[in-house]
Write a protein that binds this DNA or RNA. Sequence first.
DNA 1: GACTTTGCATCAATAGATTGCCATATTAGA
DNA 2: TCTAATATGGCAATCTATTGATGCAAAGTC
Lengths: 169, 169
Amino acid sequence: MQSPVAVLSVQAPRDDDAARFDVANRLFLRLYQSSNLMHKTGTRAVAAFGATTQQWAVMGALARPGSRESGLTVKELIAFLMLSRQNLTAVIDRLVAAGLVERLRAGGDGRLRHVRLTEEGARQWGAMGPAIRAYYQAALGGFSTEECVQLFRLLDRLRDSLNRIAEPE
Amino acid sequence: MQSPVAVLSVQAPRDDDAARFDVANRLFLRLYQSSNLMHKTGTRAVAAFGATTQQWAVMGALARPGSRESGLTVKELIAFLMLSRQNLTAVIDRLVAAGLVERLRAGGDGRLRHVRLTEEGARQWGAMGPAIRAYYQAALGGFSTEECVQLFRLLDRLRDSLNRIAEPE
DNA sequence: GACTTTGCATCAATAGATTGCCATATTAGA
DNA sequence: TCTAATATGGCAATCTATTGATGCAAAGTC
């Protein structure tokens, strides 16, 4: 196996291809591991509230300033979180069952259903704040703010790239 | 609570904390999205072989030079991929059912079971090579090799950090 | 009015991922 | 030798994620 340092040196194209393959392999393994660990540790961090990282993500989307009052449509949530409709419906169902979220028939386009935080949901989201802050601090404690931004930007580009593969039309 | 970075920074602590929280929020959302998209697009990339990204990861681990002959123990696979034993057992079960992998009672410690690629599994892994290369190229086409290394290193540190949270003992 | 598209829900199947608990075989140590 | 620790398997529950198919209601179009 080659060390990542070797990749930084100037090499022949064939070697560079091999090096890129090796880096890609390691990169995606780290993405796989990091994501699993994020769900594991993140869900533990909010377990006291009976929540999971996915429910946390949905509530976070609904709690944003622009979405708090009238909520978001399912379509908007799908675009924001990038999951399948069926999966999102199931997550929303659990949140509705827990009384944290409600589905509303909004005026205007009668097909649209807005998903909104309930009073209880907003209260709970507020209560989860300190736990979420503490989690972020524990997870990113070793990173400078610049490094956080760097990682964010790279992941943002990777997401866009993968999204382009996912929806070719 | 204050982050160590805020203490060292010249800026007002409150603003820096708020900025870090915001970046962390976006960062983990991108990690969530990227991981989902990786599984979706990756599984599509090897769907012709009836495989998934997880099975691909296990086969990749078993196909490495040092592991090809005598395989890896379940414990080693757990450490390499960082999943729960129950989950890994299920993935291995499916690979065994597909005839791509076999469980062996190795000499020495009788408790250990080595998991190894079968002939068919090794053949299939070879056949999947081009599809995997093409996938890596499509996913990371917009990234320079340096950027790939950069992303790898940041994810590596994030994984270590999350793993430290996951297993406190 | 008939047709198509869009937004959403439902049912079903398969696979991953976690947790928790119990069972078994083997090894290692007191 | 009795006991504890280790490595694995099995069973169960819950939640997440995908795909595919069906259906319905509302909106826009011809």
